[in-house]
Structures are given as structure tokens and as C-alpha cells.
Nucleic acid binder design. Sequence first.
DNA 1: ATAACTGCAAACGTTTTGCCAGCAT
DNA 2: ATGCTGGCAAAACGTTTGCAGTTAT
Lengths: 141, 141
Amino acid sequence: MTQQRKVILEEVRKMHTHPTADEVYEAVRKRLPKVSLGTVYRNLDILSKEGYIRKIDQAYPQMRFDSNTEDHYHVVCMVCGRVDDIPFEPPKDELDELEKRIIQVSKYTILGHNLEFLGLCPVCRKSRGDSLEEKIKEINS
Amino acid sequence: MTQQRKVILEEVRKMHTHPTADEVYEAVRKRLPKVSLGTVYRNLDILSKEGYIRKIDQAYPQMRFDSNTEDHYHVVCMVCGRVDDIPFEPPKDELDELEKRIIQVSKYTILGHNLEFLGLCPVCRKSRGDSLEEKIKEINS
DNA sequence: ATAACTGCAAACGTTTTGCCAGCAT
DNA sequence: ATGCTGGCAAAACGTTTGCAGTTAT
């Protein structure tokens, strides 16, 4: 845990705004003016792999498009990025209920939601016979 | 609806793989060899604004970081990108139930899920006194 | 001595934009 | 004529990487 890493973690912990890398960089720079953006990215990555922080929504490195405009959910393969539909009806009642509670508490206007499941597609699950644990390590590397 | 736009839409409708822009470009190029990637992006954008297709997960243009590594959900402001925590327990039973059904049907190995609510934060909701409908238009422009 | 790490700058991949020409209203 | 659209190329954006020097064991 270097000085830079320590400061980066401290700053992320201080910020309750779910900062972007750039926002972290700006905050860290006030304490370590010579720090580079590369170092911030590198350490945010390390810190998230070590479980100190979490990346929010890294599921889609690229934008994807869907000609089905109905409400439905997806499973995303964390290895190959493949996206499949989930052939279930959304649990609409539960989600509507949640949306109502959010509106009451947070003062947000809620316009919709995303629910996606992350995992391994059948192909990636089987490839090279690796164990599930090794797969998960691979995803996090 | 130009020829290019029509072909792009047809190809997205043919592909049930939730293609990336590049994959659409490759497919369209087989029919319109001179089409440019810029045109594909422009038209995918237009088609999604007109409701013919959907972009999957456009919530986070940038990666964000969270020092709270516990399972919890977020609301994302579609105008300013602000992310807030939802102060509710996840509806764990329903989601576990859903995960089980997905495993049965899709053969995916499910490792987790994202559930996020999209809307307008209190600040953006109020700014300039616009109506909600105008706000939504603004988001889609 | 060795390994991990930094700052810096360049590279990268995806997406957006500016420009000018062409097409449709 | 006017405005939307296309192709092309360049720019922009967020992120990653190579390198040479530094720091900490």
C-alpha cells in the first residue's frame, strides 16, 4: 500500500458521490499534486480487485443494441460479453413497489430501471475445463 | 427513412445477439459496402431515439467507483449522471428466485446482478422549471 | 537485488464531429 | 432553396500501456 494508493482509497472513501476516475484524480491531486491520471486508474483497479472499493457497472465495455424494445432483462457473460435475453416476465409488482419507495425517500423522479444478471455463458463456462473458481479469477484479472 | 437507415434497422432486427455498433457495421457492409461506421453510429442513435431499437445500458458513460462494497442499489440521474444510493435492502428473495430460474433455463452460471434505477435527480428535475415531458425530450436529444 | 510502483507520454478502442457533397422535400 | 443525410477523416473521450526512473522491501 503505497502513499498514492492510500490517498486514493482515502479520497474515494471520503467522497460519497460515486466519483468517476477523473473526479478521484482531482481530489487526490490536491494532496499529491504530482500524481498522474494513470496512477489513479491503476490504483482504482487494484483497489477494486482487492475488494476495497467497487466499480459500478462494468458489464458493457461497448454499447449494444436490441431490436426488442419491450421491457425485458438480460444475462451478460463476463468473459466474452455475450448478451442473452431472459425468457421471464419482469417481476413488475416488486419493481414498481421499489420505485415508489425510491421516489418517496430520494426525491428522484424515476423513469425506469435496468436489471441485468452477470455470469458465464455456456460456452465460456465449459472452455478449457477450468474450474469455476479459476474462471472467476480470470474475470478479475 | 433512407436506404442506409432501413438496412441498418433490418440487420439489427435479424441479429438476435444484441450486437455492438461494429457488428452492425460489419453486417450492413455486406449489403452496402460503401457505408461508413459514422453513418452506422448516427443511425443507431436515431433509431433508438425513435424507438425502433434500444441501446442496452447507456447509464454509465464513465466508470464510477464506490467505497461501499456491500450489495446495494443505485439511482442514476439521466441528465447529470449523478449516482445515489437507494436506502433499501435489496429484495433478495425475489432476485435469488429469478437467478435460480435463469440458471435452469439459460444454462448460464450466474455470479451476480445489477439493478439500477434511472431518473432525474432533484436538482435536474427542478432546473429551469421545465416540464417533465420536456426533460425527457432533453434526455433523448 | 528485487519486485512493485510511479510519472509521463503515447497508444488504444469506441464513439462523436466537422466538412462538403448529394438527395429529397 | 432548404434541410436532412451520407461518406470520409479527424477529433474527442475515457482508459490502458510502455518505459525509464524511483521506492520499498
